[in-house]
Design a protein around this nucleic acid. Sequence first.
DNA 1: TTGAAAGCGCTAACAA
DNA 2: TTGTTAGCGCTTTCAA
Lengths: 344, 344
Amino acid sequence: MDITTTIEDVANLAGVSIKTVSRVVNMEPNVRPATRERVQDAIRELGYQPNPSARGLASKRSYLVGLFYDDLMAESTYIVNVQRGVLTRCRKEGYELLIHPFNYHQNGINGLAEEITANIIKSRIDGVILTPPLSDLSIAIETLKRLDKPQIRLSPGHHESGSPCVYSDDRIAARLMTEHLIQLGHKRIAFIAGHSGHLAIVHRQTGFIDAMTAAGLNIDNASVSQGSNTFESGVKCAREILSHERAPTAIFASTDEMAAGVMSVAHQLGYSIPGDLSVAGYDNSQIAHQVWPALTTIAQPVNEMAEIATGLLIDQLRGGKKSISQVAMQSELVLRDSTGPAPC
Amino acid sequence: MDITTTIEDVANLAGVSIKTVSRVVNMEPNVRPATRERVQDAIRELGYQPNPSARGLASKRSYLVGLFYDDLMAESTYIVNVQRGVLTRCRKEGYELLIHPFNYHQNGINGLAEEITANIIKSRIDGVILTPPLSDLSIAIETLKRLDKPQIRLSPGHHESGSPCVYSDDRIAARLMTEHLIQLGHKRIAFIAGHSGHLAIVHRQTGFIDAMTAAGLNIDNASVSQGSNTFESGVKCAREILSHERAPTAIFASTDEMAAGVMSVAHQLGYSIPGDLSVAGYDNSQIAHQVWPALTTIAQPVNEMAEIATGLLIDQLRGGKKSISQVAMQSELVLRDSTGPAPC
DNA sequence: TTGAAAGCGCTAACAA
DNA sequence: TTGTTAGCGCTTTCAA
């Protein structure tokens, strides 16, 4: 198990040429099973691991995958789970991960293209995974295309067009959640919309409207307020919503963070949850367990989505299976204690 | 700005040999200023970036730094800030970052040495940054030494011995916080200890005891309870602490997560914060803003600590400045709204 | 202060 | 099915 073991050492021990070892390592065809086994034994015995630099130099690939995300989301459960999923798949496939949080709100959106370009020329990553909201930023998508870098998008708002992507149908899931509230007898339900730049989150609002309309319930303007995904924005919206004379009996916030903000305000105002007010969130973040009572929410299979996306990207990098361009995954309604029957 | 520009293109344009270009790129001495400038112009004009694989192959280095952490902490504000700090410095110094969360609770501590070894042989990282609790795990430290990999530890419990480290004095900061509570008139103060495997967090308890003793206040056994850093453990401890007949008027939890758990329980039991009960935390996590009222806590300069640690590691990798082996940083008391005068 | 040449450990192209 | 050879784009070594 020595870091200085080279392909030549393996070839010598196995009594073959280095090219044969290379074939075995890269799982290429045209190696007799007996030979293959002999080489594999030698590899195991020496603890041989190919040198990535040498490989990269010869093959003009880096075996590096980039994960691009908005630094504002770096602390979210979402990004952490994406990192986990991507890493899991990278390890299996022999790739390494380079994370890259972007601060494009500070530097201006124009700096984004330059930063992406610079990063790619410097790091030589082979392909990129884009997470929301970058997965909907055409400047990011187009810059990568111009650089001829394969990309895959996670949860874009528009999955029909553009580059390949993995997503879950937020509209349907939000509809499910709204129907859950309606079934509990709620008629005045408020919705807190997310940041308008996160298109996938906007679909949650559509799902809410779908369900309300289908149930013949009123959606006056007051029942949808505009948040920006954060706890603080949830607080702000809740203060407004709960100050109306006929306050809603349920609030569906399009992120858990905002839902937690709502709950904080509700507690301060003396509401009992879910007795006086039901609260629902979306994302199944860590915070959903840290509020009291535990938050009813929607869970996307973020980990698996990231794994699958990484797999698709690597397939692309290997030059195969370009056919799959969209994978849709299902989200799940997670019923906890923050939603209950509407007060009479 | 072409990814296929090589050192030779630059040499041709500048009218020098590739070795001279190499000298300029690597900031080596013995280049006439005029020559250096000519080369730099050529580099700029062509948008040249050296190929990391070629560099790595020739120099037997990867220009890759590894960040090793406990996957259980991946969602913490702490790890996210460490990632940010490390990335900032890596970019400045021309290194790339490979993150590696470890799941050693599942796989058993014995698997850890193997996983570290396998990872290093595969990825060829040049050096490693260890975060708590890995920075106190001798199996991690020793494995890296055996592999001859430079390492730097962030916030270890024992900073005197072992490999170089960057830390902040948690004992002093915890003492400060406790003194703050004492100055507010609190006499019955409970402390919630953190996970015993996180040695730096154990120092927080010592600081608490320092202050209590110095103030001549009683520390009966009941006033220190054992948590495990998490929100849930804070909930559990708080339920116990607040069930005593002479409940404390202040609770100092050694992590913000636990403090948030305490606040949740306190609200449920009808305590007003800080009127009936003061609550203090430690870490200045995201959650400190998401509780109501906002949490008084201790802020470590995690970002800077990570940047400095990365700088020290890279210095080591470059073969210089081995002299600095410990850097101590100062934490800051952040007064918010969860602490107030003791009730009469 | 500069440059020429060798070679890092692999893969690609081709030959046998 | 296997092997030979020629680079990939740099750094290192040594020479000028």
